[in-house]
Structures are given as C-alpha cells and as structure tokens.
C-alpha cells in the first residue's frame, strides 16, 4: 500500500451533505473488471456535461482544484453501498485525503486499505478548513504530527486510530501482519470454538452438488 505521511496543497471544496457512494461511483460501472483506472468514472454524472449546459463544471474539473489531492466534503460523506470502487476511483483520480464532519462507516474503513486518509473534524473546525478550500489557500495535512496547518499558521489537530495511522505511515499490509503475528491465536481460537460451538463448522456436502454456469 502507498505510504501516507504529509500532503500539502489546495484542497477541493465539496460541502454537500450525504454524498453517497452511488454518486461517487455509479452502480453501472461496478461491472468494470479492475480496481485500477477508475478515476474516469469518479463522480461521473456530476462531471458529465453537455454543450448547452450552463451549470459550472464540477469542482474537481475546475482549476486549481483539478490538481487537488485533498477533498473537503460535507457531513455523512460516503454513505450507502460498501463498494470499494468509490475509494479506488478517488485514489486513481489522485485524492489522498478526505476531510468531513462524518463518514459512511464502510467507506471510512475502505479508505485506510487504499492509502487514503479520511479525517473527521468538528463542524467548526471543518468550516475553517472548508473556508480555506473555497478561498483556494493551500493547507498541509501531516499524519505524523496529526495536524492540519492553514496558511495563516493555525493548526487543527485530528485523531486517527493508532494502528491505522501506523499502517498508513509505513504502507503496511494488514493481511500480511495478521498472517504473521496472529496465526497461532486464530488456530487456538478455532480449536476452542470447535469444542464449544461445533455447529459453526459447516459440512458443505449437506447442500448437495453445486454447479457451474454454461458459458
């Protein structure tokens, strides 16, 4: 996983509340086979424009925000579907950090698996960071010191769970760590559980024969 230490630059403002993962990555693109190259579908419907369209282009297509690596979103960002494509698309587009007052929980967890730092701020602090984004003043997000620094020198602290912070800083692979550190504990747990809850271990043969599809 890509490491995350420090980011600096102009953040893109998207202050809308309840932006769900269907808006971030529309369902029909879930048929695409890979987890790379999905940036083209990010916020697809919002970014799609017709010639006669009078509405301004989507924020991520408007300079200087088209080069932003930080997104300042609204309340309840990333609610809804568990699709990790929403996070893969953000990462592919170049977004490495999302700042919001609250997040959909599955989206929030998915970010950490893909080198993206989601930051929860209070409404007041969020408003301060959002104002910087709207004014296109650069900010610095530092995961080592757990602080966002504004151009005027103001520092806003944030919290990240210790193991998630460590994984991002070092680019660690969680599966690898569990397989190395916890394999013994998992085996011991399973041995115990076979004694106390034997019905939890399935005999799939009881379902009879399963088939294939005709291709």
């Amino acid at each position: 996983m890509q490491k995350f230490t420090k980011l600096s630059g102009v953040a893109a403002p998207l202050p809308e509340t309840n932006v769900d993962t269907d808006v971030i990555f529309p369902a029909r693109f879930l048929l695409l086979p890979n987890k790379t190259g999905l940036g083209a579908q990010l916020f697809h419907e919002r970014r799609m424009r017709k010639d006669e369209d009078e509405t301004p282009p989507f924020v991520l297509d408007t300079p200087p925000y088209d080069r932003s690596e930080i997104l300042v979103a609204g309340r309840a960002f990333g609610t809804g579907s568990s699709r990790e494509q929403a996070v893969w698309a953000l990462a592919d587009f170049g977004i490495r950090c999302v700042i919001a007052p609250s997040f959909g929980e599955i989206f929030f967890a998915n970010c950490f698996k893909n080198g993206i730092l989601p930051i929860v701020l209070s409404e007041k602090e969020h408003a301060a960071v959002l104002a910087e984004a709207i004014a296109a003043r650069p900010i610095v997000v530092d995961l080592e010191s757990l602080a966002i620094t504004l151009e005027n020198g103001r520092s806003i602290g944030f919290e990240v769970e210790a193991h998630r912070r460590r994984s991002l800083l070092l680019g660690l692979d969680e599966i690898g760590s569990i397989l190395i550190d916890d394999a013994g504990a998992i085996t011991a747990f399973e041995t115990r559980q076979r004694e106390t809850h034997p019905w939890l271990f399935l005999n799939q043969a009881r379902l009879g024969r399963f088939g294939d599809e005709v291709e």
């Binding site: 699709r83 998915n110 397989l179």
Partner: peptide, 11 residues
C-alpha cells in the same frame, strides 16, 4: 469492502 473480503478469505 473488497479488501476486507480478502482479509476474511485469508485469515
């Protein structure tokens, strides 16, 4: 998410 599906498959 899909990453956690992989974690469950493996561990």
């Amino acid at each position: 998410g899909a990453s956690e599906c992989e974690t469950v498959f493996a561990t």
